[in-house]
C-alpha cells in the first residue's frame, strides 16, 4: 500500500516530462487576455518564420487566453509565462509588485510598452433601431446595455472609464455627477459577463441588449465573424485610448533561458509586418506608415488617455478595488 503512495508521488513528479516537447526548439508561453486570440494566432506564425530566418532557431509559441485579471493571477500563482500581453497596465503592475518582473517594465519598450492601441466603441443592432448615438443615450430608460464586469475584465475597465471620461467632460461635472452617470448606466445593464468575449457572445449570439460597449477591435471582429450587416459600430463623441501593454516576465525567462526569444517576440510586435497584422485584426497600429495605410478603417475621434484618471494605479484603487466607486454604484440604489 505504501508502495502505491510512492508510485503515485513518482507519477506526479514525472508527469511534467511528457508535456515538454521532445525536440529541441525554443518555446514561449504568451499569457494574454480575451479578445487577442485571432491577433496572436496570426502574429505567432509570422514571428516563428521571421525568427527562424533571423536566428536559425525554431520557436513554438503557445498562448493562454482569459480575463485579464484572471490571467495575471495565474501568472502570480506560478503559470510560467515568458511574456504577458494583458488588457490593462495595472494587471502587469500587480505581477511586478510581487517581484516577477522589473517595476519599470513599461519603459523597456517604445510607447509605454503598448505596440498597438484600441479604443472603446458602441456596437448596436443593424440600422440602430434605438438611435444610440453617444454616451448619454446609454442611460435612457428602456435601453439595455451589455458590458462585462470591470472587476474581472480588463476591457470592461476601459469601457467604464470611457463612459466616465465623457461624463466628467460635461459642463458642471463633479465626481458625484460622474458617479451618478455610471450608476444610471449600470442600472441599464441586464447581464454582467466575466469577460469581454462573454459579453460579445451575449449580445451577438444570445440577442441580449440594445448596445454593447466593446473594444473597437472586438466590435469589428464580431461584425466580421458573426454577421456582416447585422450590427453597426457607433463612435461616441469622446472615448478613451485603450493601451493594452506587453512585457517579458523576467523571473520566468531567466529561469527557462528564454529571454532572447521572448524579447525578440515582443520587439517583433513593433515591426511593420506585425503592425500590419495588428491593423488587419482591427487594432490601431503605432507605426505611422501602417496607420496611414489603414486610416480609413480607424476613424479619428477625440480620445482621452489613462492619464486623465491619474494613471492605472490611481484609477484601479479609486474605482475597481473593494469598496471603490464600482462597489458603491451597486451598493446604492438597488
Amino acid at each position: 500500500m505504501q508502495r502505491f503512495v510512492i508510485l503515485l508521488a513518482a507519477l506526479l513528479a514525472l508527469a511534467p516530462a511528457p508535456l515538454a516537447p521532445a525536440w529541441a526548439q525554443d518555446t514561449l508561453l504568451n499569457v494574454s487576455y480575451d479578445p487577442t486570440r485571432e491577433l496572436y494566432r496570426a502574429v505567432n506564425d509570422a514571428f516563428a518564420k521571421a525568427y527562424q530566418a533571423e536566428s536559425g532557431r525554431r520557436v513554438a509559441i503557445r498562448t493562454s487566453h482569459g480575463g485579464s485579471g484572471a490571467q495575471a493571477r495565474a501568472v502570480l500563482d506560478g503559470l510560467e509565462a515568458d511574456v504577458v500581453t494583458l488588457a490593462v497596465a495595472s494587471d502587469i503592475d500587480a505581477i511586478a509588485a510581487k517581484g516577477l518582473l522589473a517595476k519599470n517594465w513599461a519603459t523597456r519598450l517604445p510607447d509605454d510598452s503598448t505596440p498597438f492601441t484600441s479604443t472603446i466603441v458602441l456596437l448596436v443592432r443593424a440600422g440602430n433601431p434605438k438611435q444610440v448615438k453617444d454616451w448619454p443615450d446609454l442611460i435612457r430608460p428602456g435601453i439595455a446595455v451589455i458590458t462585462p464586469n470591470p472587476k474581472t475584465s480588463g476591457g470592461a475597465r476601459w469601457n467604464y472609464l470611457a463612459a466616465l471620461a465623457w461624463a466628467m467632460r460635461q459642463p458642471g461635472a463633479t465626481e458625484a455627477s460622474g458617479e451618478e452617470f455610471l450608476r444610471k448606466l449600470f442600472a441599464n445593464v441586464p447581464v454582467l459577463d466575466t469577460g469581454a468575449r462573454g459579453a460579445t457572445n451575449t449580445f451577438v449570439q444570445r440577442g441580449m441588449g440594445d448596445v454593447l460597449i466593446a473594444w473597437e477591435n472586438e466590435a469589428m471582429l464580431a461584425q466580421q465573424e458573426l454577421g456582416p450587416g447585422k450590427f453597426d459600430v457607433v463612435y461616441p463623441s469622446l472615448s478613451i485610448r485603450a493601451e493594452p501593454p506587453v512585457a517579458v516576465v523576467d523571473s520566468v525567462v531567466d529561469k527557462r533561458g528564454s529571454r532572447a526569444a521572448a524579447e525578440a517576440y515582443l520587439r517583433f510586435l513593433y515591426t511593420k509586418p506585425a503592425q500590419e497584422i495588428a491593423a488587419r485584426n482591427h487594432y490601431r497600429p503605432r507605426d505611422t506608415e501602417v496607420a496611414a495605410r489603414h486610416a480609413a478603417e480607424f476613424p479619428a475621434i477625440p480620445m482621452v488617455g489613462i492619464t486623465e484618471f491619474g494613471g492605472w494605479d490611481k484609477a484601479q484603487a479609486a474605482h475597481f478595488a473593494d469598496g471603490g466607486v464600482f462597489d458603491r454604484i451597486f451598493a446604492k440604489g438597488r
Partner: peptide, 8 residues
C-alpha cells in the same frame, strides 16, 4: 517542480 498549471 510545476504542479498547478500543469498535469499534476
Amino acid at each position: 517542480i510545476q504542479i498547478v498549471f500543469a498535469l499534476p
